[in-house]
């Protein structure tokens, strides 16, 4: 069946983090309100869960510095490392919704089943992209769902809505590909992007 994937236009990402916050607002990921929660209660690192974020890499030397912006989220891989590493998921039965992590057959979206997940965090280690995030309140792992609740209505029909990040992208850099061709996986990937052959992520990049 068809895989939904991402097209990220690297030239157009302005590094504004609007995708990050639109996702947080859509999915109500914490922190919800003041006071800011901190990891380990030490007031240094805020404790939150982000399904999408923007990687900002600086390089170069004055007067020719450079900064690149790459928006990053779950890539709903063809061979998800999270699923493979999950003790409560069968990689040979990956579409089974009773897995703690499963991959939908109809559109390739990879989901973490919150009723089954026990928070072992293997997937955090396995994912090359950092998509799974540990929620310290639920003690489980969650991640980008490709806004499946926006894409489909309660009868399972496509709605015409897009994921919150795609909808809001200020630079017009982030797009959905309805029929992602895994041959294009990792095409034009930026420097230091994981080798696409590892998990065959459903993402390709555009330049120029």
């Amino acid at each position: 069946m068809a895989q939904i994937g991402w097209l990220i236009d690297l030239d157009k990402c302005t590094g504004c983090d609007s995708c990050t916050i639109a996702c947080k607002s859509e999915n109500n990921t914490p922190p919800a309100a003041s006071p800011m929660p901190f990891k380990n209660g030490r007031g240094v690192l805020p404790d939150g869960v982000d399904y999408r974020w923007v990687v900002k890499k600086e390089s170069g030397i004055f007067p020719l510095p450079a900064v690149t912006f790459v928006t990053s989220a779950c890539n709903h891989c063809r061979h998800p490392a999270c699923l493979a590493s999950c003790p409560l998921a069968d990689i040979n039965d990956l579409h089974n919704e009773n897995n703690a992590i499963f991959k939908r057959e109809e559109d390739g979206i990879v989901l973490i089943n919150q009723d089954v997940c026990v928070g072992c965090r293997n997937c955090l280690q396995a994912c090359p992209y950092g998509a799974p995030q540990f929620n310290s309140a639920t003690a489980k792992v969650e991640k980008c769902t490709l806004c499946i609740h926006r894409l489909y209505d309660s009868d399972g029909r496509r709605t015409g809505f897009l994921p919150a990040c795609v909808t809001t992208c200020v630079g017009d850099a982030l797009h959905l590909i309805e029929n992602f061709d895994s041959v294009q996986s990792g095409r034009n990937a930026p420097e230091d992007f994981a080798d696409a052959e590892l998990t065959v992520p459903s993402v390709e990049f555009a330049v120029g």
Binding site: C16, I21, A22, S25, A32, A33, T167, T168, V170
Partner: peptide, 15 residues
């Protein structure tokens, strides 16, 4: 189903 783009500050207005 037609939405406009909005930056992160606008998105955070709920808070």
């Amino acid at each position: 189903t037609e939405l406009g783009r909005m930056c992160l500050k606008g998105q955070a207005g709920v808070q």
